[in-house]
Design a protein around this nucleic acid. Sequence first.
DNA 1: CCTACGCCTGCAAATACTTGCAGACGTAGA
DNA 2: TCTACGTCTGCAAGTATTTGCAGGCGTAGG
Lengths: 121, 121
Amino acid sequence: MPSRQLVAKELADIFKLIAHPDRIRMIEELRKQEYDVNSLATQLELSGSRVSQHLSLLRAHRIVEERRDGRHHFYHLTQPEIAQWIVAGLVFIEGRLSGVSTSEIQSARALWLDNQADETG
Amino acid sequence: MPSRQLVAKELADIFKLIAHPDRIRMIEELRKQEYDVNSLATQLELSGSRVSQHLSLLRAHRIVEERRDGRHHFYHLTQPEIAQWIVAGLVFIEGRLSGVSTSEIQSARALWLDNQADETG
DNA sequence: CCTACGCCTGCAAATACTTGCAGACGTAGA
DNA sequence: TCTACGTCTGCAAGTATTTGCAGGCGTAGG
C-alpha cells in the first residue's frame, strides 16, 4: 500500500479514536489535570466501567498515560496539545447546527481554551 | 442536555465524519481543486458509487458543496481550512506507528501543506 | 424519442463499535 | 488472612457503518 494511503488510514484511526462524546469529554477534563478512574467517572456522570473501557482504548493508542498509586490509576494526556487540536474542530461546526447555538459554541471554546472560565455550563 | 455535552456530541460527529481513509483522501484531493465524481474516483482508484456515497455524507454535513454542470457534479470543500486541520492531526501519530515511518509522515505532511510537492508517493 | 453517460439512492450482508454486566486481579487496612 | 475498594477484562446483545450491487433519475447527443 502506498504511504499516502497508509497515512490516511492512520489519520482515520486517530479520528475514529476521538469520535465519541464520552472520550471527547474525558480529554476535555484531562487537559487541566490528571484524574483517577472514579473521579473522572463521577465528574462526567458515567459508570466506572465505561470510563475504564474508554481509557483502555485511549491508553492503547497512547493518547493518555497511566500513573499508579496504590489502588488508584491516575491518567493524564500524553500530548496535552491534542485538546487544543480538538477544539479547533469547533470551527467546522459553527453556523450549521441544529441543537447548538453559536453562543454555546463560543462558551465551549472559551472553556476549553481558558482554565479560568466558568465551568458550570 | 447541558450544552457542553451537546458540543462534545457535535464534535464527535465531525470526527466520525472524517474518520474514514477514503474520505480523508477525498478531502486531501479536494483541497487544491474541485473534482467531479468520476475524476475523483479514478484518481483514488475507488468505485464511482463508493465515492458518491462518501460525498453524499460529506455533503449532508456541509463539508463539501456541489456545483452542477450538465451531467457532471463538481465538488469542492466548503471550508478549505479543514484540510489543514486534518493534517495537524499527524502530530499525534508520529513516533508510535507500526506501518508508517517518520519520513513517510513528513512527506505526507509536506504534500498536504504544499501544492508544489511531488505527488507520486 | 432513444440511448449512453454521470450520478444518486435503496437494500441487504458484512463488519465494527458501544454498552452493561459479571467476574477477576491487585492493594490497603482491620 | 479476610474484606472492601478501585480498576480491568470478557462476553453477549444492541446499534451503527461500510460496501457492493441493482435500479432510478436527469442530461446530452443522435
